[in-house]
Design a protein around this nucleic acid. Structure first.
Lengths: 239, 239
DNA sequence: CGCAGTGTTGAAGCATATCAACTTGGGTGG
DNA sequence: CCACCCAAGTTGATATGCTTCAACACTGCG
């Protein structure tokens, strides 16, 4: 069941069989949620954390004027609110952007894990630290990249992250988000997002139709995005 | 020497005397750095992590066109590159924005700590998770707040964080950054940052002169910023 | 004294938001 | 089964926000 988590962790370090067993025992319940359903409510204090087994979810914040900003995109294998184990109360909500299959790990069990499995603890810690690195990359993109470069950067990032969990086919991957949702990721209006997308299409580097992104010119995409993958920490090394 | 770190951690949870002792033994060397000197170089793989004892530093990224984006501001008590313990290679540089006094903890000692001190490990983990929460708040500010609200939000955040380590006096605090640096935080041009600042001054909510911010109308500032402090996790509770 | 860094101002141009209208496709109820 | 409707994507026009460029004032410092 928790294979995507294991793929995710194995992209950073090796796991012992014992550790894989501990992981599989950690998730006691699972659940399916519908599109647009909240996985975690802003302000709540859940006594468990949520692993995304299948689907795409987003961490988001709604402003007083009703506008929304998405601060993270989660894919299969992401421990979407592991940080709630430390932080207790959720400062953001998490919503299912597609139908999702999720599993839960109780914070009490996670606490025991931190006392008995230091290596797994460090790997869990690592995943939250990589989340932070992705946040920083988004800050850079929002502050100092053109909108076209920002969008290109997002596509690069999603491609590599999806590749780790085996969700890419050649140079394409499924991205079943609406343009409204993408605009909420980039902090743009829908109208402008649409025109930015058309810019990339006209350049011939990618298409995005039928909820599927196809990359025609990966090198050019990297160049437009000024993309450097080190922040994703895809090297396997002892942690 | 490491008092600001202890103040910082104690704003989230209680520490035992033993833990305080472990902490003070963790930092074996210290150093002073000059303004504009790099504390950590982008791309480096330091075998230690750095605690900021005094001064202000910033995590930053320089783009190909020479523009710069600051992704985090560190103050006394911040473990500025603790995440490098997990992540190994630095995806950003860290620069001293004022003269800084720093101390070092070897990653080998941190590894031992994760095997022997699960509670301290969770607290260290917590500080990196709060860093991520701050990053998310910045993403929201960049994407969906007006520039005036963004600046106001930053002032609120810095005030509360500085208060924890005793660096505020009444409703004012020292902020010895240039407008160029502030612009690199907000992802703005200097010219527009200047005008945004004047907007807040004209509203009578704050002044910023002689490298010191003075807040006249805290409630109004909160309102302009749409500020909610939960992401800073300033409540003391068991972690 | 002159020079460099910092803050400030105004003008012109580009980027992005907002508003409004139209298209398309799939799903649904009459 | 068809007509309709609604969500999603697209387009153009206008308004606003932000950048860039250029100039100038002020300060501390060699």
């Amino acid at each position: 069941m928790i294979n995507p988590l294991i793929s995710n962790l194995k992209s950073h370090d090796t796991l012992t069989l014992h550790e894989e067993k501990v992981l599989s025992r950690l998730f006691t319940r699972d659940k399916r949620v519908l599109v647009d359903e909240d996985i975690v409510l802003q302000g709540s204090r859940p006594p468990f954390s949520t692993l995304l087994l299948e689907g795409i979810s987003a961490r988001y914040r709604v402003m007083e004027d009703g506008s929304r900003q998405i601060t993270a995109i989660n894919i299969a294998g992401d421990f979407v609110d592991l940080h709630a184990f430390m932080v207790k109360t959720m400062d953001h909500g998490i919503v299912a952007l597609t139908p999702c299959h999720i599993a839960f790990a109780d914070h009490s069990d996670l606490k025991i894990l931190t006392e008995q499995e230091p290596h797994l603890t460090r790997l869990f810690w690592l995943t939250t630290v990589i989340d932070a690195a992705i946040h920083r990359e988004w800050i850079v993109a929002m502050g100092r990249r053109t909108k076209k470069a920002h969008l290109a950067h997002l596509v690069c990032e999603l491609f590599l992250r999806l590749q780790v969990v085996g969700l890419t086919i050649g140079r394409s991957f499924s991205l079943p988000l609406s343009q409204v949702e993408l605009a909420d990721v980039l902090g743009l209006s829908v109208v402008h997002l649409n025109k930015t997308l058309q810019g990339l299409r006209k350049d011939g580097v990618l298409t995005w139709a039928d909820r599927t992104v196809e990359i025609f010119d990966w090198d050019r995409l990297l160049e437009i995005a000024e993309f450097d993958a080190t922040y994703l920490n895809l090297a396997v090394e002892p942690r």
